[in-house]
């Protein structure tokens, strides 16, 4: 091709580029129209979710103004209301969840892509998918009826030995107090975070596993040929290759963790003050606030709930956009086809 172009005599005007025009048939024009319409409908639905939340929230937001962000209590019908406490609770639960979930997800993704025997992999991938589809109410039941009571001793142990770190402090109990009632440790941010971690770990894990398994075999073999152990190979080839997916998967999980509702509702006991001690009874989250208060609300209180929902919406949207762009950028994708 290039040879022919060079051989062309100088000065001769390049022939005008042919215009390629496709005359689409009627069927194709209709198809493209319908498909575009479908895309537009999807876009409209997704935009409407945000638009309606904002529209409904206006009433309350106009009333409260900026104090909506700084007020802790939630009494829309009589006095102040704000999301300071619930946002802090939501973020704390999500942070506990994402710390635990990231460790689990990276480990399991590495196990599936690097360690598990080949015949087992398809099953494990299926199990991770299944885990993502287990209803949240099932996790909630397990967390509220089983895990909560088994974690108490661990919570107490952490608060006994690491209580000097502010977030692990539990007010109202002294160290090694044999009479301390274990209920101080129930319904805490920590327990809710653990349960949410189980729900978001498979989501993060499947993103990571996909990236890890695409790490180029040539580079893997190269690392082995240079004398790397398996751990050395993972550290120098697989993890750098999947770095974007690790970050992206974590963010995607974070988005889910921020919005998780029913499992959190079943575990926490809501308080409307900023409560940074994660092992102690009582916390709150935006979604659990909405789920528990939507029924008994006057129109104004309902508008306040929509405002809280709008805050959650904005938060998850930002996190998700960042996650999506990181994941999209990390994936090389373009593989030539045979």
């Amino acid at each position: 091709m290039t040879g022919a172009a060079v051989a062309r005599p100088e000065g001769q005007a390049t022939p005008e580029r042919r215009r390629l025009k496709t005359n689409l048939g009627l069927a194709d024009r209709v198809f493209r129209g319908v498909a575009r319409g479908g895309g537009a409908i999807v876009l409209v639905i997704m935009t409407l979710v945000g638009a309606f939340l904002a529209y409904r929230a206006l009433l309350a937001l106009r009333e409260s103004g900026l104090s909506f962000v700084t007020t802790e209590e939630w009494n829309p019908d009589s006095g102040g209301f704000g999301i300071a406490a619930v946002i802090v609770g939501t973020v704390l639960i999500a942070i506990v969840a994402i710390v635990v979930a990231t460790v689990l997800a990276v480990g399991v993704a590495l196990y599936i892509s690097e360690f598990a025997p080949l015949w087992l992999r398809r099953w494990l991938v299926g199990m991770v998918d299944l885990m993502a589809a287990v209803p949240s109410v099932v996790y909630g039941l397990w967390g509220a009826f089983f895990l909560q009571w088994k974690v108490l001793s661990l919570s107490r142990w952490i608060s006994d030995w690491f209580g000097w770190i502010p977030i692990f402090k539990v007010s109202g109990v002294t160290r090694h107090d044999p009479l301390a009632t274990p209920t101080v440790y129930t319904s805490s941010t920590f327990i809710a975070g653990l349960v949410v971690a189980l729900m978001v770990a498979p989501i993060a894990c499947s993103v990571m596993r996909e990236a890890f398994s695409q790490a180029p075999p040539g580079e893997r073999e190269g690392a082995y040929a240079l004398g790397a152990t398996r751990f050395g190979m993972i550290g120098t080839v697989v993890l750098p290759f999947g770095k974007g997916a690790i970050i992206g998967g974590t963010m995607l999980g974070l988005g889910r963790a921020l919005g998780e509702t029913i499992a959190v509702v079943m575990i926490i006991s809501p308080v409307f003050v900023i409560q940074p001690r994660i092992l102690e009874n009582g916390t709150s989250s935006v979604s659990s606030l909405i789920a528990t208060h939507y029924g008994e609300s006057s129109p104004f209180a309902l508008s306040a709930l929509f405002a809280a929902g709008l805050a959650l919406f904005a938060m998850t949207l930002i996190v998700n956009f960042i996650a999506a762009s990181i994941v999209a950028r990390s994936r090389s994708g373009a593989v030539s086809e045979v």
Binding site: M46, L258, G259, T261, A291, L312, F313
Partner: peptide, 8 residues
Amino acid sequence: MTALPDLL
């Protein structure tokens, strides 16, 4: 939107 909270 895939990770839109179900509640919303």
